[in-house]
Write a protein that binds this DNA or RNA. Structure first.
Lengths: 215, 215, 215, 215
DNA sequence: TATGAATGAGCTTTCATTCAT
DNA sequence: TATGAATGAAAGCTCATTCAT
């Protein structure tokens, strides 16, 4: 009896999770397809196979729906990037792995990322800034990772002395810029070449002497 | 009669120009005030002292109005930047002057630029890409300037050998990133410090040896 | 030329007034027909021969539309009542004329008044109380009139000494109650009889001695 | 088996009653809190510790739920009023006790009564008038009580000769008006003073001669 | 008996665009 | 050239009610 009851609430929880996931997925699809302005309760719900009203059973309003979807995107990205980095590798190698993963993953979800890069209004310093702060968390965590590599490299005298916090910011921005250039159709090269060129610049920026060689 | 007609068309042309300018100015103000979503024909026309309907005499639709306004912003920015660069100075100095001007001018129109950085949908690779292409023109011209400096520096053996086209892109992106970071409230320092730090990084990136010293 | 221009703006003003009136009329009709909950922008606009959107050219929102309509009803009622009172008559006669007018006019717009009596939420002491206050103005003015009669009667020693302010309130409430009873179908008598009976009570309440005789 | 079944249905009946009471209580609370418009199945059921769907096991629809809740309010009020009247007292005293109780009880449930006075749509002469009739029952019973007092007073030659039915109606309306005035914030005095002033008027209205003195 | 997910109809409001004047 | 009234197509959100479990 207890089991069946547990099963029951289990089923419900599962359904709930499924619907929530389903809606987030749908939202992502719509964002990728037409940007944030295309996100209509109508469209999202249709995409998820529900009616408008049903969405409100899972999210209190459109804003929260979008925020949750975007947060999920970021969180997933950060996790996937971290998963591709070999913790035992040296600082420069880890930096390279991180940036390579970042760009590869962005390329994988081209449309979605393009939409996010084209429309950054979610980062607006809204009143209270709750929303923006929630999203910056992921960026901060990512930059922190980069900073760790830099700090270690500096300590090991492989990298120059520098303000590693600033450097991490600029390095990440270079990665984002590289993606951005591709997304808006301003780079005809294969991703790999873009990555190599970017890494060459970053190498110049931080390394003490050695010339950069692909790898 | 002919004279009067000429006069008339002269007057008309003047009036036409005046109205157009007026509308673009108004559009800018509205964008600065509330971003692109705040741009309604109602608000713009009111700000310009006209009525909604009249806007359609000068622009075929909202999209073109916004595009023209943004184009004007960019064109003006590029011109103002160029005006602040001493053509006789050395390549590094010209680079510094350019970037300093870029960031200072952006800071001057903080609200407007924040809106443009938050919402870059105009750069979407629209069908035909007409729109985006019109805007890229200014960016390209600006990057071209940066590239000239770099090329000259390379030729004079002051700068390292490098893909100056790529470098110009990244350097400009670093400037934009610096502005962006300020606009979303992620930098508490005075602009001047942000500029100095950025220049230090760029110096590392391109110079052959000499350590960078502020100036 | 000036004339034609004057005519033009005149025409526009006239049209504006006409539409506004038209919408208020429509709102009244809908209220009379189905109470405040029946007031839908859709229904009102259709009744006025317009589309939903057009209503917003004349009223900023539904609340203001309703408020304006109700205010108009009250203002009109007060005016019409006052128009039916002979300023030269004695205080009791004026009182009688006032109450008779009040009830007759209410009866004339039976459905409308019923809706107002059934749903008095507009008088809710809303935050700020702006709305309620606007409406109480008319009631206050009406009670003031009644009070004047009472004061004069007291002064002339026709009426008893009393708190005339309170009395005015209760007397008006008796009139409203009389109407209310009719509207909810709890009085089968002709209006005239209801009025007479009410007046008899009021006579008892305020007169010094003389028995009341219909008049 | 039979016993257990009996027990079961006993339990069931008890549970049923409990749930019903619970829901009515919840409905009252919600009405008091935000008026009839605040009554949503969601809110009521949550307040009663149930889910939306369950409400339909005890009431066929929202209308009946509200009607039952309001009926209960009225029934309770009438009972409580009657409980506070000394059956052996004289007619005037009983009248005074009745009205005093009425107003005191209304004041006790200020929020609830305000909601009922602001929104009397339940008394609408609905098709068939079933609903209204159910509610009028309580009012009629209350007025009947008042009428009894009046009849007795007339018989004992303490009160004037009058249409006691009408008088009962008006007297009750005066009580309601007094409460109403307080609820919409148009009386700053303590309840006791309002009651005294009202009683003074009623005294004038019905008594043969004696001046009214508080009591 | 009880749940709560889902529906579907309805509501207010906004706005680009058109067009008679 | 200029007006501004009008349209019409959305969009976000709410809620009574139903129904499979």
């Amino acid at each position: 009896m207890i089991q069946s009851s547990a099963k029951n609430s289990g089923r419900k929880a599962v359904l709930n999770t499924y619907r929530t996931r389903s809606l987030l997925e749908a939202t992502r699809k719509v964002i990728a397809d037409g940007g944030f302005d295309a996100v209509t309760m109508e469209r999202v719900s249709a995409e998820a196979g529900l009616t408008k009203g049903a969405v409100y059973l899972y999210f209190p309003n459109k804003e929260q729906l979008i925020l949750a979807a975007v947060e999920e995107i970021f969180s997933e990205m950060v996790e996937r990037i971290e998963a591709q980095v070999d913790a035992d590798a040296g600082p420069w190698e880890r930096l390279v792995q991180t940036l390579r993963a970042e760009l590869t993953i962005m390329e994988e979800q081209r449309d979605l990322i393009r939409a996010l890069l084209l429309d950054r209004r979610l980062f607006r310093d809204s009143p209270g800034g709750h929303q923006a702060r929630r999203l910056f968390k992921y960026r901060d965590r990512h930059e922190e990772r980069l900073k760790h590599c830099l700090d270690e490299g500096v300590k090991k005298k492989i990298f120059r002395t520098m303000d590693t916090s600033q450097a991490a910011f600029y390095i990440n921005e270079m990665a984002v810029s590289t993606a951005w250039r591709r997304m808006i159709g301003r780079s005809a090269q294969p991703l790999e070449r873009d990555i190599e060129q970017m890494l060459a610049f970053i190498h110049l920026l931080i390394h003490k002497r050695a010339r950069y060689t692909a790898g």
